[in-house]
Structures are given as structure tokens and as C-alpha cells.
């Protein structure tokens, strides 16, 4: 991973323990001091404070004071039916965005891999969803999904399926949010997978074809093993983003109807700013963070196992 040249810079070796050597050993810390101090103050201190808040009864009216109540907020969480709904919808949403987003993105990358006329412009169009700001995307999708005059309902009505309450029925709200999410996420997956596909050596594919393998076989035995590590990485990214995602869910449904699309992260907002229960909101947040870390850990374990298999 490290290049040989760069290690020549580390002047912390024993024979360099002169005064200037010791000073030189401090240089890296001088470099990282400001950015780290920054992240400490604006990221990790607030994060720690938020986790601490989950052990207090802080309320929004007075956010800087709260009494320590131990695990009471977590006990409340476990007796709150909304917690199970939120946990459930977070996991469902995350799994579906990974399956559909990574699936569609990879299929798109495979279709776009070979050069054809107009590929650059089509590639640009396919990337729209990734580049458009969340709020702008939400606005147009809200209009598309609008009950009385939205185009989605015009289409379903024309198809004879009748009108659908896209964002306001328990049955359709989550699938509608998923459609918007896939629209945003799949382009990024496609971009990453296209880069990965370029690393597949064409000679190997060709040799496989000459040996009589059909397209599907070539894909399964040559292409797939090459792009698998990237696919796993991009799945991790998509999963973590889904657990973190707030804006489009909050703006599309506000977590409704009756909390059915309120993921853990949306629930932080609702509990804090509608119920004013900062302690409980923090507990929701802590569970959300734990879930994201769990996904990262699973990915890390997979990665390590693959590294072992490869070194054998």
C-alpha cells in the first residue's frame, strides 16, 4: 500500500535522535494538528455530547442542561412501538437500496461498457440523479407523485391501474421513496462499476470466448470475480448512506404516514423537534450510528477474509 519512496521521509528512526531529528519527528503532528483539532471540535465533541445526551433527560427548551438518568431513554426506546417500526424500516430501506441501487447501477454499467455512438451524452444523462441537489430532486419527485395532478397517477390511470396514493399510503410510501433513492444512487454505482469494468483484461475474456464459453459464462467466470471487490465496496457505501440519509425521506413523506417511513435518522429529528425529547432523540441516533458501524464492520470482516483467501 505504501510506496517505497515515501517511507524515506519518516525521520523517526533511532539513529536520528538528534535535536533536529526530534524536531523533524514532530513535523507530521504540526501538519495534522489543525485539521484534527477542527474535526475534534466540530465532529467528535458534538458526537460525544450527543451520545452523552442519550443518558440524560435534556429537552429542547434548554438544550445545554439535563440530568443524568442512566439508561432510561434506552428503556423508553425498547417499549416504544415506533422504535421497532423505525428499526424495521431502516433495515428494509437499506437492504432494498443496496439490492436495487447496486443491481441497477451494475446493469447500467454493463450496458454502457462497450463504446457506441452517443455514449458520452447518454452517460451524462444517466448521471443526472447523482448530480442534482437533494432539495431540487425532492421537489420534482413530489410533483411527479402528486395525488390529483401528478404525472405518475396520469400514467397509472392510463394503464388502467387507477390512482395510487404514492407518498401518503403505508403500502406505497416506502416503495416510492425507494424509487427516488435508486434514481439518486444507481448513477453513482454505475460510475464506480464502469471504472471497475475497465480493469477487466480483455484478453482473458477473449481467451474464454475462444474456449467456447458463452456470454453468460464469460461474465460469471471472468468479469464477476474482477468486479466483485468494487461491488462490495460500493454496497458498503450505499448501505451506510441509506442509514444516514435524511433529506429526501424527510422532505418526501416527513416520516409518515403514521411513522411508517420514519427511519432512525428521521426519528432523531421528529423526536427532537416535534416531541422536544432530546435524550430520546439521542438514543435513536446512537442506535442509527451503531447500525452504520455494524455494516462497516461486516464489510471489514469480508475484506479481511478475502485478503486471506487471496494470499493463500
Amino acid at each position: 500500500m505504501q510506496t517505497v519512496q515515501t517511507t524515506g521521509l519518516a525521520s523517526t528512526s533511532r539513529k536520528n535522535r538528534t535535536r533536529s531529528g526530534r524536531l523533524a519527528a514532530l513535523v507530521p503532528y504540526a501538519f495534522v494538528a489543525a485539521p484534527l483539532a477542527y474535526l475534534g471540535v466540530f465532529m467528535f465533541w458534538p458526537l460525544g455530547r450527543q451520545i452523552w445526551m442519550s443518558l440524560t433527560d435534556t429537552r429542547l427548551m434548554n438544550p445545554t442542561h439535563g440530568d443524568f438518568v442512566g439508561l432510561e431513554n434506552y428503556r423508553d426506546l425498547l417499549t416504544d412501538p415506533q422504535f421497532y417500526t423505525s428499526l424495521n424500516v431502516t433495515i428494509l430501506y437499506t437492504l432494498w437500496t443496496v439490492v436495487l441501487g447496486v443491481g441497477l447501477g451494475t446493469v447500467a454499467a454493463l450496458a454502457m461498457d462497450r463504446p457506441f455512438k452517443g455514449r458520452t451524452i447518454i452517460r451524462a444523462i444517466l448521471l443526472f440523479g447523482w448530480a442534482v441537489p437533494n432539495v431540487a430532486a425532492t421537489l420534482v419527485w413530489l410533483w411527479i407523485f402528486n395525488g390529483p395532478s401528478g404525472v405518475a397517477n396520469e400514467i397509472t390511470e392510463w394503464l388502467g391501474l387507477g390512482r395510487i396514493q404514492w407518498l401518503t399510503s403505508i403500502q406505497w410510501a416506502l416503495p416510492s421513496i425507494l424509487a427516488v433513492t435508486v434514481w439518486q444512487v444507481a448513477p453513482f454505482v454505475m460510475l464506480v462499476m464502469l471504472a471497475a469494468l475497465q480493469s477487466v483484461p480483455e484478453e482473458v475474456r477473449e481467451a474464454c470466448r475462444i474456449d467456447g464459453a458463452d456470454g453468460l459464462n464469460v461474465f460469471r467466470n471472468v468479469t464477476l470475480p474482477y468486479i466483485m471487490p468494487t461491488m462490495q465496496l460500493v454496497s458498503l457505501l450505499v448501505a451506510v448512506w441509506s442509514i444516514r440519509r435524511f433529506e429526501i425521506i424527510y422532505l418526501l413523506t416527513g416520516g409518515g404516514p403514521i411513522g411508517s417511513t420514519s427511519t432512525l435518522v428521521v426519528q432523531i429529528r421528529l423526536t427532537a423537534f416535534e416531541d422536544y425529547e432530546l435524550g430520546l432523540a439521542s438514543a435513536y441516533g446512537a442506535v442509527g450510528l451503531l447500525l452504520a458501524l455494524l455494516v462497516a464492520l461486516i464489510n471489514y470482516l469480508f475484506e479481511r477474509r478475502r485478503a486471506k483467501v487471496m494470499s493463500k
Binding site: Q50, P63, V240, L289, A292
Partner: peptide
Amino acid sequence: MTQVIPEALLVVPLYAM
């Protein structure tokens, strides 16, 4: 870690800060 932390988690402590 910064890429795993949900923004929504930092809103209240940053607000207080």
C-alpha cells in the same frame, strides 16, 4: 468515522454549541 456519522445526529449538539 466522519463518513458514517449521520448529519442528523450532530444537529442538536451543534445547535447547543
